[in-house]
Amino acid sequence: MDMKASAPDLRMRAQTGRSRSLTWAGYAVFVWSIAYMLPHLYWALDGKVGLSLLKPEISASSEWEMINWVASGILTAAGFLGIAMIYLEKRKWLSWSLLAIICAGCAVATSHGIYGIGYRALQIMGAIETDSGPFDMKQHAYVLWDLLLFEPWFAIEGILLGVLGWCFMNKPRGRRIWSTLCTVGVLVGLITGLIGVRFA
């Protein structure tokens, strides 16, 4: 077997596998982000369906419309970030700049989701009270929806962003560094959550 002849073929196969994984990861980030953007855009346009899933004080606040416009913009940007990493793969200077944003997004979204799931679970179990007292299903249905719907979305978004960055890396060392940075970022997010600071 000619090792010299087979080496380029192996590199080409590895590159093809990486490109395929990066494409899947990029589109997964796009679809997941846009799917969550749509209800925010609907609420920003004064839609009323689904408001019962939310904490009443939030949906009734004077900033509600602005919150949803900002969320729609951020989620749209996150979605197109996934697409950008596919098609800007060869523009290293821009890709590396976007990776810094992706790493931050991974850390914030994942830690937000993990913290939120744990916090809401403790509220439902009665270990932590809600703003208006012990958990009551009729009065605090938003806590359950947070646990089952909204917080898991954050966690999955963060994981998908982490996978996107990991797929972009083409060397084991780069992937180890990426995994370490994302893990540290998530831990920092969880610690700040525990001391009363949440970034999203």
Rank of each mutant, 00 (worst) to 15 (best):
A28I: 02
G47T: 12
T130R: 09
L147R: 03
G26W: 07
Y119K: 08
L45S: 13
L147H: 13
R175M: 12
W166K: 00
G50E: 08
K92F: 09
N170G: 15
L10K: 15
G105K: 14
Y42Q: 09
Y27C: 08
R120I: 02
E129Q: 15
E63H: 02
A5S: 10
W93R: 01
E57K: 10
Y87C: 00
G26I: 11
D2W: 03
F150D: 01
Q15D: 03
G193C: 11
L149T: 04
A44K: 03
E57D: 12
I177Q: 06
A107H: 13
A25K: 00
E57C: 06
N68A: 11
L54I: 07
G26V: 10
G133T: 08
M125L: 10
G174H: 05
L53V: 01
A71S: 15
V184A: 12
L144E: 07
A141W: 13
A107M: 07
L122W: 00
M66W: 06
M85E: 06
F150K: 15
R120A: 12
D136C: 03
T76L: 15
G162V: 04
R173L: 12
K90I: 02
A5P: 06
D136R: 01
L164M: 06
T23H: 02
L160H: 09
A109P: 00
T192H: 05
V108P: 01
R173M: 09
E57N: 07
S179Y: 02
G73L: 09
K55M: 08
E157W: 15
H112R: 14
Y27T: 04
H40V: 15
M66Y: 06
T180E: 03
T183H: 03
Y119R: 08
I159N: 06
L160G: 08
I177N: 05
V29I: 05
V108L: 14
H140G: 09
L88E: 07
Y115D: 08
A35D: 04
L94I: 10
M12A: 15
G118Q: 06
R18A: 12
I34F: 07
A121K: 01
F135E: 13
D9K: 13
I58K: 14
L22P: 14
V188R: 15
E157T: 13
I58W: 14
W145N: 11
A5T: 07
A127Y: 04
A127S: 07
T180Y: 02
